[in-house]
Design a protein around this nucleic acid. Sequence first.
DNA 1: TGGACGTGTCATTAG
DNA 2: TACTAATGACACGTC
Length: 591
Amino acid sequence: MMEIELPPVQQTQQDMDLIDILWRQDIDLGAGREVFDYSQRQREYELEKQKKLEKERLEQLQKEQEKAFLAQLQLDEETGEFVPIQPAQHIESEATRISNSSLENNNLLEQDGEALSFDECIQLLEETFPYGADDEASSSAIFHCLVPIQNDCSPDLIPVVTTASEPHTTVTDPDRVDDLEQTWEELLSIPELQCLNIENDSLEQVTVIPETRPALPESFYSSITMEKQIINSASTYMDAFEDSFNTTVHSEDLGQMNINSLETSTSFSADFCGGLYPALNSSMTISGTTSQAASKLLDEPLDISDLSKCKAFSGDNQGPAPEFNDSDSGISLNSSPSATSPAHSAGSSILNDASFGYSDSEMEDMDSTPSSVQSQHVEMYSLQPCEDTAYQPSSSVLLERQTTGLKPNGSLKKEPPASPGHSKALFAKDKLSNRLEARLTRDEQRAKALQIPFKVKEIINLPVDDFNEMMSKHLFSETQLALIRDIRRRGKNKVAAQNCRKRKLENIVELEHDLDHLKDEREKLLVEKGEYDKSLRTLKQQLSTLYLEVFSKLHDEEGKPYSPSEYSLQQTQDGNVFLVPKNKKPGIQRK
DNA sequence: TGGACGTGTCATTAG
DNA sequence: TACTAATGACACGTC
């Protein structure tokens, strides 16, 4: 395609005509008129330039924000954590913080008359974990036992969690053990510490955390990575969170969530993806007590700190299930076969198998069954997209990606409804996903399900050679190959059917047009026939008159006229006229 | 609720 | 023989 670039001032009418001609020549190739429009192309170039500058400014601003954030961080030598630098008047000792915390918790615990006070809890913990004379260190350690272990979206995002000294993990005195167990039960009856109510093994794992003081750069990098991720994707993730969160938390609870700072949003994000879901999901699978705690989480006003408290231990809940350590998400935890929900196991198995185990015909059967679980799977849970970037993932996909940290082509996990209410919320939320998914054809959904890295359009429209070449670059399973062949066959047949129907309609229209034309023609011919008949009658009339006139002028030898009943006039081919007796052959010729 | 209509799909045939 | 287009027939969803 030729390109003509002339400054607008130099474009004469002749140039414009030439451009127009060239455009008309290339219009069949899909070339737009703007291709030949220099001024428009220049405007586009300016626009791209502006976008580039805008992007650079944003990146610079982001770097400055990171620097400002780092400047506010201070390495806590005791805990190894990076903590925000607080104003001098707000700097408090760890003991004071614990004291304040105990006051707050006492206020909370006062609501539960039989529960232990927080100081008693602290004392109990000190007895359980005698950290020696270093009160500050022990307090710090205890504090970190209660403070959520930051977790969970990704191992990279785990902030530093430390214990002050080597924890003592064995209690040898049996009486003391009994007392401790009883006290622990009382301690766990505290609503705010419900999340501590986990298996003893898990508790031991919580308390027997080895002294892990990650190296500074790693924790530093983790914090930076987390902040960076939050900054970069805050808006996107918050949309997904908001969407999902609306389905999880009562609307009135949302009002109590004041997310107005980066730190809060960070905590919220970490809490949500690592804390809320694991807390909720694990609550279904561990024990009724934990379920109650989760129910309280749903029923009571949601407090981020509460989420944080539960987060650490729900994260640890994944500990006893090492087979799911590859994914640190609550969703993956929920996909554990130990899940007690039958619906879960059914849905999970169907999810895992539907897309990969069913043949095309079986998938077709499922597709044709709206109430089938497969259909719900396809509609409710967005399939992992292939390389087709045109597919916009639904909010649930975004949420799932963030919470699971799965790559786009990662293994698919399905999360069953946590509860009837949660299920309803999920259905409500996924109506949007349904609309988005509904835009995908079934073959596109199948291709996604089988993780076929081609666009359906490519599969269908590529010529045979290109198609074979494309196929030869990848290794596919039989199922994938069959699906690709079916997609190509169906796609071509679909187009053929559309063309066929189009032609059929065109033929029908053309035949109807022909029919109308023939009807018109018939009408014209009928009118013309009538005119001819009328003319013929006139001519016959004139001929009869002329005949009688001619006959009346004929006389015999005696001067008598011939009778028309006895004679008739006949004309031969040569033009001669004869008077012929009607009962005789022509014998007398009269000229 | 039945019918019209549009669409996708399958089976078959011909090129 | 493989591939494709064409087309009738059927099923399904929507109005």
